[in-house]
Design a protein around this nucleic acid. Sequence first.
DNA 1: CGGAATGGTAAACGTACGTTTATTTATAAC
DNA 2: GTTATAAATAAACGTACGTTTACCATTCCG
Lengths: 227, 227
Amino acid sequence: MAEASDTKDRILDTAEHLFAERGLGQTSLRQITSHAEVNLAAVNYHFGSKEGLIKAVLARRLEPLNRERIRRLDRLERQGHVTLEGLIEAFIGPPLELSRDGGGGSRFVRLMGRTYTEHASFLHEHMRHANEALVNRFKPAFRAVLPELPKTELYWRLHFLVGVMSYVMAGNDMMQLLAASRNSEQEEPREIIRRVVPFLAAGLRAPLPEELAQARDVLEASPRDPA
Amino acid sequence: MAEASDTKDRILDTAEHLFAERGLGQTSLRQITSHAEVNLAAVNYHFGSKEGLIKAVLARRLEPLNRERIRRLDRLERQGHVTLEGLIEAFIGPPLELSRDGGGGSRFVRLMGRTYTEHASFLHEHMRHANEALVNRFKPAFRAVLPELPKTELYWRLHFLVGVMSYVMAGNDMMQLLAASRNSEQEEPREIIRRVVPFLAAGLRAPLPEELAQARDVLEASPRDPA
DNA sequence: CGGAATGGTAAACGTACGTTTATTTATAAC
DNA sequence: GTTATAAATAAACGTACGTTTACCATTCCG
């Protein structure tokens, strides 16, 4: 048998599938190897441990994905055409578009979205490290298109952005319930992008909390300034 | 022994603690009963099963929490003073403020945030049912303050809002890393509310995707219309 | 006093898990 | 053709899990 690494890829594909479907902790190596029709011990042989398998599943897709995100940002800057909307789309577009391919891509995106709220310290550490270059590249770019925003405020809002992105990527059941008006399955990711980019751009551009409290009649009725 | 239901409460408190800390699937009944210093079988005696315990942990806090959210919305409407910002704060304020109490409250909020992305179909069903009245109460209110927004678009944006809320509630590690500038721990939840409400309000008020694509030079440079 | 309930407990049940070991099979080198 | 190397396998290891059973203690009501 043993032709190159057919087994290795079958394990990765099946693991990606089941991890996204049922979660990391709830998916056993026995389920993976049984579905992949390989031997149970093959996982430990090729990946050392279940943790190693998880990291391999993530790395296989994450690296080209982040390369594409940075490539898009590079292109924006090369064109001297960096807008907030373009920046957001360069960041959240590639993962959402990857979910368009009916195969492993969509599974991986859901897995990636859930990663943000999984309970596994090694996972958080791994993702943080895997995304370090990405974050270091995008953070200054956001700072540049939102120069009036204080550093702290910008970082909070970028976290809110990540919250939306991971929630959308996780593709919650509630979300799918809502998608009663889905016409074409192929265009769905682009439709989400079309809807979410203006939402996030407006949120990032929102007036500062302090300014807002003074300038408008938001929150509760302010006793002073009856205009 | 047997004084009322001391055991029952100790199980609930400890379970809430550990569920939030390590996740539902990763927390065993043996860990819970051992920390709570009660017998292992007590969980199945009082709650029937682990699933029953999880539901009890959630229900204990969720019901008063949602009652408070609806109470705030009632008050806004009674005062005839329903703003978008007020609506958002009535919805996301109570859970975030609950996280202020250093005790079980903060643990529960994190647990609740993670619930949205946990892998357990019974959980999603339970949460959906537990939040049904809440959603039915708030949805029309949001519709009323955003009358120009198409129904579908509003629902998408409310999902984005839930994404931000659950992400903030889950209190991701990344988020805590960022909180290097935390001065007072007590005011932190209110500070998050202060920051997130303008973000969400601006996102909900954002111009429609179609309008935006026509009116501005967003996304990529459109070949036509060289203005 | 006596007998249900109710609360609590110890011990075991069967199952599933990740991992390891020892062994066999295939590939390639000399 | 023999030997080294890598890949694949079958079987077992030890551990941990949720749940169940059978048994003890307390309370309360007739």
